[in-house]
């Protein structure tokens, strides 16, 4: 596996943030995958020594700022799946493709559920099921990444 530079990690995280900041609206907003979290998970699984829970927290804060949300909402919503990803990082490298897809989908849903709980506490209504579409589109994007032969976990690709 080629070593990854810090520039690559932060460059891609920045690109993810820019994608997030595109003016999404309406149905596109519902479908919008969580780009920043996807990039974070990719690096968390691939190079946990360059991108760790602290990075996830920092990116979450940036997302909160860009979205004008309460400080710390996305930060917390990113820290929790980041923890799970780091905790199981050694095992993920042994997963098959479908196991990995399931794992990442679970992480995306965890982030959305944490965010939902925080939103409910601050007085929002329970959204419809289409709320989880963002995780689905996220996992499709992840699958695209794997098909485009960017190796997430290196050697064990089937």
């Amino acid at each position: 596996m080629r070593p990854v530079s810090v520039g690559q990690v932060y460059g891609s995280l920045f690109a993810g943030l820019m994608l997030y900041m595109l003016p999404w609206a309406g149905f596109g907003l519902m479908l919008r995958p969580d780009f920043v979290l996807l990039v974070l998970l990719y690096w968390l699984i691939r190079t946990p020594h360059l991108c760790n829970i602290g990075t996830a927290w920092f990116m979450g804060m940036l997302v909160d700022l860009a979205g004008g949300d309460l400080f710390g909402q996305h930060a917390l919503a990113y820290v929790v799946p980041a923890f799970v990803a780091v905790y199981y990082q050694r095992r993920v490298t042994l997963f098959t493709r479908w196991q990995q897809l399931g794992f990442v989908f679970g992480l995306l849903v965890i982030a959305q559920v944490v965010l939902l709980i925080l939103k409910l506490f601050s007085g929002s209504e329970v959204p419809e099921w289409s709320y989880l579409l963002s995780s689905v589109s996220g996992i499709l994007l992840w699958q695209l990444v794997i098909y485009s032969k960017i190796k997430v976990t290196g050697e064990r690709e089937a």
């Binding site: 760790n52 602290g54 710390g72 909402q73 917390l76 925080l118």
Partner: peptide, 26 residues
């Protein structure tokens, strides 16, 4: 072996910071 504080410690720390920030902001 050079991974710094354990993931659980980091999770606790950053989650606590986020919660404090949320309360302070809200």
């Amino acid at each position: 072996f050079v991974r710094g504080p354990s993931p659980l410690a980091r999770l606790t720390f950053f989650a606590a910071v986020s919660l404090v920030l949320m309360v302070v902001d809200a």
